[in-house]
Design a protein around this nucleic acid. Structure first.
Lengths: 338, 338
DNA sequence: CTGAAAGCGCTTACAG
DNA sequence: CTGAAAGCGCTTACAG
């Protein structure tokens, strides 16, 4: 039943050498003579040997595993982020453990500790909303290298890679204001989400900079799921003094709002100018095409992975932050004034 | 520089017991007296010990890691699949290594072998298009438990979980035929993709079943990316004898075709009825809402993970197949006849 | 160029 | 209830 595992010892016996020699052959050490190398490689082939890197890692005290914890892989922004992290990690010989927290801070805590037991070389963390400081203190105590991604967290011991949400929102709001809008809503997102908080301040700042008043009735929260947000946001659409434009917390919300407008007999882009955040490829395919602020998920992912890999190499390095500058992509959803 | 690692030996010394005892405490073995257990736990806490599960795994000859290889995590179908696999794996105490093959069969081969060196307990594989039999033969030779997902592969030694592409296409095509369409295109997908081949036969079968002729000019391939497909598909739209309806290889293609129609002054749903495949949530948000055949990515993911976990537990189990039955979701894109 | 020995951090019969 | 010993599969000085 139990498959007998072929080990370095079996190879040594079969090839008539010591296991030190086999190990050196495996590492392509130059000091091994061509003849013995070939003999060993024959045995490796004949016996169907497969290297056990975990055993080697134990002995060497290294690891090729990186743990990545995000909220939801089905969110295209995080899918792109994950893809870039995986790609960058692979270039440096790392594998990535993917874990979804589903915004559950209990589960997040447990799974992070478990990843450390599994001896990851480092951690990339998009902290769940409401992550308590204790989680980071515990992680910090273990000495595991880590990098925060996407979601800022007030802890200056940590590396961070993420978008500039403040600048992104200011950019988008200014665009709408300069297009002539005066009543601009901010739709969607959950209250305590730090990205949303930063976007809100960018929005305020743009209003202020243009001498516009802030109307709290125009700021609407929504639940996280892509579909449940529609209803939350529909209220503002049907307001008597309806806003003429809206910043949408992300591109999903933007698409939902389009839908909501149509359901109420209004035309997206004409009856309400719309800008989203994230820069999802899908925004190009909506009708009308959705203006969006690209947050460069791939770049953020690449930066996060690079920062972590550098910290693994140099634990005493001082903390770095890589803040990606957003780009406004103007499409018809914000230029089709009626 | 090198952080001294706290091990079981340090705990043993500190608590004044043997390391066997510490190990037993860690495993919550009932035979350890309450008093020593507490003493040991104090030491664990005081010294900031963290368990090294890899060392334990080496000794125990087990592993909690599962390798998942897919083509592209940014494809929402695969994102959902991955999410379900991760969730199911976590329920059974497994972590998942996520790897993207990007349809590169060289890279796929290497990375699979590397995962095995990393001592994964098993593998879930969505084989890249064109995967050669040798890859599976090598994997099979190592004895690693594995499960194929989504993409069928002619190897009856393997467990498989995936959608019934043939039934899905037959369902969609029959729907269009019964709605009154006679010229129905099949748009998008890459030639050698086995899922596409199965969908094509479902499409043929529906045509045949209704006594309709097959016109090869109405079957169009497209490149994989979500955006590049538009151009490939636009040809058929502008045909003199334009089809009145189309099966779109997946929902992305469906959305692209909507876009392409509009660019040519045609109205999706009215000038051409459209049905996609996958059942992405976004289809509900397009305009008009896109009819689609749901392939149940989550169920497929759950099945794949369960099959693998069962195989890990029982390697000699005979191969199982879990074929998910698709469901047609009819929306306006296929019912807005002009 | 090659081998004997110690050790990575843990577990598990086996004694007592 | 607890400890001494062997061992998981590998690596790495250290001799020769």
């Amino acid at each position: 039943m139990e498959r007998k595992r072929v080990t370095i010892n079996d190879i040594a016996d079969h090839a008539g050498v010591s296991r030190s020699t086999v190990s050196l052959v495996l590492q392509e050490h130059p000091r091994i003579s061509g003849e013995t190398r070939q003999r060993v490689q024959r045995s490796i082939h004949d016996l169907g040997y497969t290297y056990n890197r975990n055993a080697a890692n134990l002995r060497r005290r290294t690891s090729q595993a990186i743990g990545l914890i995000i909220n939801d892989i089905c969110n295209p922004f995080f899918a792109e982020l994950t893809s870039a992290i995986e790609e960058t990690a692979a270039e440096s010989g790392y594998f990535v453990y993917l874990v979804e927290s589903a915004e559950d801070i209990e589960r997040q805590h447990q799974v992070l500790m478990s990843l450390i037991e599994h001896d990851v070389a480092g951690l990339i963390i998009c902290p769940a909303t409401g992550t308590p400081p204790e989680t980071f203190d515990k992680l910090y105590a273990t000495g595991v290298p880590m990098c925060l991604a996407v979601r800022p967290y007030p802890d200056d011991r940590l590396d961070f890679a993420g978008p500039d949400n403040y600048a992104a929102a200011k950019l988008a709001a200014s665009h709408l204001i300069e297009t002539g809008h005066r009543r601009i809503a901010f739709l969607g997102g959950e209250r305590n989400n730090p990205s949303r908080i930063d976007r809100l301040s960018g929005y305020f700042s743009a209003l202020q900079g243009h001498g516009l008043e802030f109307d709290p009735a125009l700021v609407i929260e929504s639940r996280p799921s892509r579909l449940s947000g529609i209803g939350d946001v529909e209220r503002v659409i049907t307001l008597p003094d309806r806003p003429t434009a809206a910043l949408c917390y992300n591109d999903f919300v933007g698409i939902s709002v389009m839908h909501g407008l149509r359901r109420n007999g209004l035309e997206p882009g004409k009856d309400m100018a719309l800008v989203g955040f994230d820069g999802m490829p899908e925004t190009e395919l909506t009708f009308p095409p959705l203006s969006t602020v690209s947050l460069h998920a791939r770049s953020v992912g690449r930066s996060a992975a690079s920062l972590l890999i550098m910290r693994i190499a140099k634990p005493e390095r001082r903390p770095h932050r890589e803040v990606e500058q957003p780009i406004l992509i103007v499409r018809e959803s914000s230029t089709l004034r009626r």
